[in-house]
Design a protein around this nucleic acid. Structure first.
Length: 560
RNA sequence: CGGGGCGUGGCGCAGCUUGGUAGCGCGUUCGGCUGGGGGCCGAAAGGUCGCGAGUUCAAAUCUCGCCGCCCCGACCA
């Protein structure tokens, strides 16, 4: 029963003042969601309809690969998390009960599910297993942002695979890839499956599903046959024309020139001919990381190269150990030096470690020693593995899949007995999807200047039926009858039977963005029937009243 | 956690610099007109000015503290 006159669908004429992104603005304006606090969102009836449709698609595809749905609690004993070492995660909500026992609010459910599997799975005969649930996750986010995109409480579909060995894990992983590809395809979302960092999850490998759109927090590198998060992307750099090499470095004055642009501009060399030196502190010791002047240091790659956390050096530390910030370089530095692999050849420019001076004609190896590693983020135009040119795009991470290996099964004692009676750790994978992010990504990707344009499969309703004129008009009787016929035929229909002006009703329909709009009014009836309009392309058509319902369903079928 | 911004009827905002009757648009309610792109006329309801302390005869306005929200960064399954 969805008559708008009695339905809770509060639309807004103006954008909310605190919204920056299209999806945030439109989801609030269209009455899908309302905010309760920072990173805390309520799904109103229309928005929750979208969520439920996405969840139904997820369930059907997971069931299809043999997933078994269950439900695990959000409130959990801290003990489990201590055993896997995740209790220390800052984002984990921690609390105590009245007896002063420690609890956490789960951010995912590896500990929980592995605990049960460790108790109740003992034989290789019981493997493999795919278990999943749709459950609330809690995260003490440092900075919630962008509407429902980064929040402190959200629902996630998370599944977990349990296999006898890594070959089994590979199969479970592949099954999830196939299921996820189908899920996002069915949701009408454009996504890329990209290589990603395994993160704090630990494990053997990971991919993310990225939905490109402006509001995305992540950046992905795309080329024909290649897709990766820029955090892990690799590519051959674009060549740079180096100045002629010298027999030895020569000091040149560069008064007050501290940026790459200033130095390269003044010396008349390309930015890529400079060596940027970034001093970082690792376990109290300074290390110098070098990248080309036209490249960006990739902090994740640096962390991997160092094998541990690091922080940027403070200006005083730089001054004390190297020279004035803005004029530092590797030559003469008594420090471990990591050089990015893109710094090739001789003739570079770098800081002289003294005020207002740089060195030209620098030759790595001859003039300083280093360890060579991949430290830079790829740039648009670089050559990807496979030969294509890299293009960078922002994207929303809507799903992530991880090969966990024995990261959780070992500390939690999840083992099985194999055919020979030997005890072995279960090999695990975990696979998440964020339905709310999927909604936001669909809104971002489909919106136009009038409002949302839903993919047909996840729209809150198939048909937005608008009745114009007074309730006692002839048109109202026609609209009432059409509403009944459409529902009879199985269509999900939102019927705007409010006593409101045509402008308000029509703009609301465009804002909400259901795939097919039907308008019943005096004018349309006089001109031969009901007006049908496809939201996506605006194509309009008159449907004779007698066959309006039938024809409307045909039109629906023709949309995506 | 660092930087910036904001907090005034449901929503969007003005008022604050220079202290003295709390205002505008939209929305809401009632009556009437209108009825294909948020229309018109008339009447009305609705605000502890985020919270607390201070200064003052007097605080939305000045001072201090706190809280909340947004943005950038740090951070991030």
């Amino acid at each position: 029963m969805t008559r708008l006159a009695e339905y809770f669908l509060p639309t807004l004429r103006e954008d909310p003042a605190d919204a920056e992104w299209t999806s945030h603005k439109l989801m609030v304006r269209a009455g899908l969601v309302r905010q309760l606090g920072a990173g805390l969102w309520t799904w109103l009836p229309s928005g929750y309809r979208v969520i439920k449709r996405i969840e139904a698609i997820i369930r059907s595809e997971l069931d299809a690969i043999g997933g078994q749905e269950m439900l695990m609690p959000v409130l959990q004993p801290a003990e489990l998390w201590r055993r896997t070492g995740r209790y220390e995660i800052e984002e984990l909500f921690k609390l105590r009960d009245r007896k002063d026992a420690d609890f956490v609010l789960a951010m995912t459910h590896e500990e929980n599910v592995t605990y049960h599997v460790s108790h109740d799975v003992r034989s290789y005969r019981e493997l493999p297993l795919i278990l999943y649930h749709l459950q609330t996750k809690e995260r003490d986010e440092p900075r919630p942002r962008a509407g429902v995109l980064r929040v402190r409480e959200f629902t996630m579909k998370d599944s977990y695979s349990f296999d006898r060995d890594t070959e089994g894990l590979d199969r479970s992983y592949e099954l999830h890839i196939e299921a996820y590809d189908r899920i996002f395809d069915r949701c009408g979302l454009r996504t890329y499956r990209v290589e990603s960092d395994v993160g704090m999850m630990g494990g053997l490998g990971a991919h993310d599903y990225m939905a490109p759109c402006a509001a995305g927090e992540n950046e992905i590198a795309l080329a024909p046959g290649y897709a990766a998060d820029v955090e892990v992307a690799v590519a051959d750099p674009q060549p740079v024309e180096l100045p002629p090499p010298l027999d030895e470095p020569r000091r040149v004055p560069t008064p007050e020139l501290t940026t790459v642009e200033e130095v390269s501009g003044t010396l008349g060399v390309p930015a890529g001919a400079l060596i940027k030196a970034m001093p970082v502190i690792v376990n109290e010791r300074m290390v110098l990381a070098l990248v080309r002047g036209d490249h960006r240091l990739n902090e994740l790659k640096l962390r991997h190269a160092l094998g541990t956390e690091f922080r940027a050096a403070h200006p005083e530390e730089i001054e004390a150990q190297l020279g004035p910030p803005g004029f530092i370089g590797p030559i003469g530095a008594e420090l471990p030096i990591l050089k990015d692999a893109a710094i090739e050849g001789d003739g570079y420019v770098c800081g002289a470690n003294e005020p207002d001076a740089h060195l030209i004609g620098v030759a790595p190896g001859r003039d300083f020693n280093f360890e060579e590693v991949d430290l830079r983020s790829v740039e648009a135009g670089d050559i990807a593995p496979g030969g294509g040119r890299i293009e960078l795009q922002r994207a929303i991470e809507v799903a992530g899949i991880f090969k966990l290996g024995t990261r959780y099964s070992e500390p939690l004692g999840a083992t099985y007995l194999d055919e020979r009676g030997e005890e072995r750790p279960i090999v695990m994978g975990s696979y998440g999807i964020g339905p709310a992010r999927t909604v936001a990504a669909a809104v971002e990707q489909g919106a136009d200047d009038k409002g949302i344009v839903w993919p047909r499969t996840i729209a809150p309703w198939d048909v937005h039926l608008v009745r114009l004129g007074k309730p006692e008009d002839e048109a109202a009787r026609t609209a009432d009858a059409l509403y009944g016929e459409l529902r009879e035929a199985g269509a999900e229909v939102l019927y705007d039977d409010r006593e409101a002006g045509p402008g308000e009703k029509l703009t609301d329909a465009e804002l909400l963005g259901c795939p097919l709009r039907l308008v019943v009014g005096k004018r349309a009836l006089a001109e031969g029937g009901v007006e049908a309009q496809i939201r996506r392309d605006g194509a309009a058509e008159r449907l004779p009243v007698a066959e309006a319902a039938k024809r409307a369903l045909e039109l629906l079928d023709g949309i995506d």
